[in-house]
């Protein structure tokens, strides 16, 4: 109860904004569906609504909030604001995993792809963290650049194997995240991310303390390496689930926690809700924008977020430099 009242306290405007954007998004699309049709149960229009629009909205909200939370966890356990699933190569490892699963088990269910992507990205992200802990110049900016470089290499390998095994078509659809293919019955795996968001809340203080450094964590009786491992598992799983169901949704985990941090600080427990909220809101806005800019055509959300995300990332880099 206390948690619930905390979530609702003084957040009325946040709920209003999100809900109105959410409801609005239900009525935007190529097929014309109006409130009228829903109320009077025009069966064909209602069908579009329930099979396509509502699942799409749900998946946008879940993917946005869980990606933002993974980014927050990643930034705390690496103690670096510029590290996120996008800039640490996690997403690229996921994609490599998905492709490996497609090649090895072409007819396997989505859950198996998630599992392989999870295993591969957990391995890859751990490798990245070990690597950056070894390099000398651990500058705050060098770390994400190394991650993106490594991600590029992994990407090249994925593409190579995709050509080799003639699955380019399949893999291309994972290049740019896209919610337009989501319909009732094929997206429900995304809800697997929800328990991990709850786990993140229960583990929030551990992540904040890990972000204070190894010494502080040890002094407070925490096993720093253990917290990092738990964080990596959550981040890899959420990224894998999202990539398999919706494709690569870049930069959400990078920019959302940074924006929240400017206003509310970095205490994970305090900002978890705001991070999830802004992640969901941002992805929802971009998804709607994608439907509107070239109407009646759709721009994949991955493209829109890449543009917005890299611009904000650059701004953050410059700002970081000024504050250094």
């Amino acid at each position: 109860m206390r948690i619930l009242s905390k979530i609702f306290a003084a957040r009325v405007w946040q709920w209003i904004l999100l809900l109105s954007a959410a409801v609005g998004s239900l009525f935007i699309g190529v097929a014309d569906v109006s409130l009228w049709d829903i109320l009077f149960a025009d069966s064909e229009r209602l069908g579009i609504f329930l099979v396509s629009r509502v699942p799409r909205l749900c998946s946008v909200l879940v993917a946005g909030s869980s990606l933002a939370i993974s980014g927050l966890i990643m930034q705390r356990i690496t103690r670096n604001r510029f590290v996120s699933p996008t800039t640490a190569g996690t997403m690229e490892w996921c994609r490599l995993g998905v492709m490996a699963a497609i090649i090895a088990f072409p007819d396997a269910p989505a859950i198996l792809r998630v599992f392989v992507a999870f295993a591969v990205s957990l391995f890859g992200t751990s490798l990245f963290l070990t690597f950056v802990s070894r390099i000398e110049a651990r500058s705050i900016v060098v770390v994400p650049l190394v991650g993106m470089m490594l991600g590029g290499v992994v990407n090249a390998a994925s593409t190579f194997f995709a050509y080799q095994y003639d699955v380019v078509q399949n893999v291309a659809s994972w290049l740019q995240g896209n919610f337009s293919l989501i319909i009732y019955g094929n997206y429900e795996l995304l809800y697997l991310s929800v328990p991990f968001m709850i786990a993140a809340y229960l583990y929030a203080d551990n992540f904040t303390i890990a972000g204070m450094g190894k010494g502080a964590a040890t002094s407070l009786g925490l096993n720093h390496a253990g917290v990092v491992r738990v964080g990596l598992v959550i981040v890899s799983l959420v990224s894998s689930i999202t990539i398999v169901e919706a494709g690569n949704i870049p930069f959400v985990g990078l920019i959302v926690p940074n924006i929240v941090s400017m206003f509310k600080g970095d205490n994970v427990k305090n900002i978890l809700f705001d991070t999830a909220w802004l992640g969901a809101f941002l992805v929802l806005l971009c998804d709607v924008a994608g439907r509107l800019v070239l109407f009646p055509y759709e721009v994949p959300i991955g493209v829109i977020l890449s543009v917005i995300g890299s611009a904000v990332f650059l701004a953050l880099l410059l700002r970081g430099k000024r504050h250094a």
């Binding site: 203080d205 904040t208 204070m212 502080a216 407070l220 970095d266």
Partner: peptide, 17 residues
Amino acid sequence: TPARLTVEELVAFGRFP
């Protein structure tokens, strides 16, 4: 600490154990 914590939050973490 690269994390942005308030003084009170920082001191409160002393109670964590």
